[in-house]
Computed example of a mutant assay.
Amino acid sequence: MSDATANDYGDDSQFEDYFALLKPRVMSLVVFTAAVGLLVAPVGVNPVIGFASILFIALGAGASGALNMWWDADIDAIMKRTVKRPVPDGRVTPKNAMIVGLWLSVIAVGMLALTANWFAAALLAFTIFFYAVIYTMWLKRWTPQNIVIGGAAGAFPPMVGWAVATGGVSVESVAMFMLIFIWTPPHFWALSLFMNDDYTKAGVPMLTVTHGTRVTRNNILGYTVVLFVVAIATAFTGIGGPIYLATALILNVMFLMGAVKLWKRTDADADGDEYGAERKFFRLSLVYLFASFAALLGDAALRKFDLLNAWPVVI
Score class of each variant (00 low, 15 high):
Leu307Cys: 08
Ala295Leu: 14
Phe290Lys: 04
Ser285Met: 15
Phe305Asn: 07
Phe281Arg: 04
Leu284Ala: 03
Ala300Tyr: 04
Val287Tyr: 08
Asp299Arg: 06
Ala295Phe: 09
Phe281Thr: 05
Phe305Gln: 13
Ser292Lys: 00
Arg303Lys: 08
Leu297Asp: 02
Phe290Ile: 13
Ser285Pro: 10
Lys304Gly: 15
Ala310Val: 10
Ser292Val: 00
Leu296Ala: 04
Val287His: 08
Leu286Pro: 02
Ala301Gln: 04
Leu308Val: 14
Ala310Arg: 12
Ala291Lys: 03
Val287Trp: 08
Ala294Ser: 10
Phe281Glu: 10
Asp306Tyr: 01
Ala277Asn: 15
Asn309Lys: 14
Leu302Ala: 14
Tyr288Pro: 00
Ala294Trp: 03
Arg303Tyr: 07
Leu296Gly: 02
Arg279Glu: 14
Arg283Val: 11
Ala310Asn: 11
Arg279Trp: 08
Gly298Gln: 06
Tyr288Gly: 01
Asp299Val: 12
Leu286Gln: 09
Ala300Glu: 03
Phe290Asn: 05
Leu289Thr: 02
Phe305Pro: 06
Gly276Asn: 07
Phe282Gln: 03
Leu308Trp: 12
Phe293Thr: 02
Ala295Tyr: 05
Asp299Thr: 09
Val287Ala: 13
Ser292His: 01
Asn309Leu: 11
Ala300Gln: 05
Phe305Trp: 15
Ala295Glu: 06
Lys280Val: 13
Ala295Pro: 07
Ala294Thr: 06
Glu278Val: 03
Ala277Val: 11
Leu284Gly: 00
Leu308Tyr: 12
Leu289Ser: 03
Phe290Gln: 05
Tyr288Ser: 03
Glu278Pro: 00
Gly298Asn: 11
Ala294Glu: 02
Ser285Asp: 08
Glu278Ile: 02
Asn309Ile: 12
Ala301Leu: 09
Asp299Ala: 10
Phe305Ile: 12
Ala277Met: 13
Tyr288Phe: 13
Gly276Leu: 11
Arg303Pro: 08
Ala310Ile: 11
Leu302Asn: 04
Phe305His: 15
Ala295Cys: 13
Asp306Thr: 01
Ala301Val: 10
Arg283Pro: 07
Leu296His: 01
Phe305Cys: 13
Ala277Ile: 14
Ala291His: 06
Phe281Ala: 09
Ala277Cys: 14
Phe290Val: 07
Trp311Asn: 01
Ser292Ala: 05
Phe290Tyr: 11
Leu284Met: 04
Leu307Asn: 09
Gly298Asp: 12
Phe293Trp: 03
Asp306Ser: 03
Gly298Pro: 04
Leu297Tyr: 05
Leu308Phe: 14
Phe290His: 10
Phe293Gly: 02
Phe290Met: 06
Leu307Ile: 03
Leu296Asp: 02
